[in-house]
């Protein structure tokens, strides 16, 4: 009783359980045990051949914590295939899925930018709202340019307000005309008017 040293710790080296083969892990990703699926998804980090299986898992996975693990591993790939495979879920009716996918895409600065022309032109305005959410966090020099374009051109007020929210942390005095034009485009949107008015003093103060 009391403090005891780890049993079988006479040798200082770590006893790491042998890693299952990639084939085994790919099967485990589809196991009925969610914890096995979660661990397998995490273990498949940097395994390119696992991408198709993991991408297929994103849409069907019912356990949020397994889906998070799948997305953590996929996002690290940051390739066009992964980005395109994730972007289809931005239109999902399931809030947990579309927000989790948007979060993952926001950590993919190499591949997410190539999706922007299509996403900015998506017919579903809910997809464009999610796109503004991605751009809010995407560490990419063009993020601001795309947001300004959404604010200037998007026909849906909720997309424009989402883009304004994403833009403001990086906005400066030069962006004031675009913001004012947005207010003029949607004169009946009280939130948009309030937001721009609240932001103006800070923006013009930095001129």
């Amino acid at each position: 009783m009391g403090l005891v040293r780890k049993t079988a710790s006479t040798e200082p080296e770590e006893v790491v359980p042998p890693e299952p083969s990639v084939e085994t892990l790919l099967q485990q990703v589809q196991d009925t045990d969610p914890e096995l699926r979660r661990e397998a998804a995490l273990s498949l980090v940097e395994v390119a051949e696992a991408v198709p299986v993991l991408l297929a898992r994103v849409g069907v996975e019912t356990e949020a914590r397994v889906r998070d693990a799948v997305l953590t591993t996929l996002a690290a790939h940051d390739t066009a295939t992964v980005a395109a495979g994730l972007a289809v879920h931005l239109a999902s009716d399931e809030a947990g899925l579309r927000t989790a996918v948007a979060e993952a895409l926001a950590t993919m600065p190499r591949s997410a930018p190539d999706l922007m022309p299509d996403l900015l032109a998506a017919p579903d305005h809910d997809v464009r709202v999610m796109t503004a959410m991605i751009l809010a966090d995407l560490p990419h020099p063009d993020a601001k340019t795309w947001l300004l374009r959404m604010i200037a051109e998007d026909p849906h007020p909720n997309v424009v307000t989402g883009a304004i929210d994403a833009l403001l942390p990086a906005a400066d005095a030069g962006d004031v005309p675009v913001l004012q034009a947005a207010v003029a485009r949607f004169p009946d949107d009280p939130f948009l008017r309030f937001t721009v008015q609240a932001a103006l003093p800070r923006l013009t103060g930095t001129a």
Binding site: T161, T195, A199
Partner: peptide, 12 residues
Amino acid sequence: DDAATVRLYHTS
């Protein structure tokens, strides 16, 4: 709300 502008609006 994750949008700071929305929080500000509703809070105000």
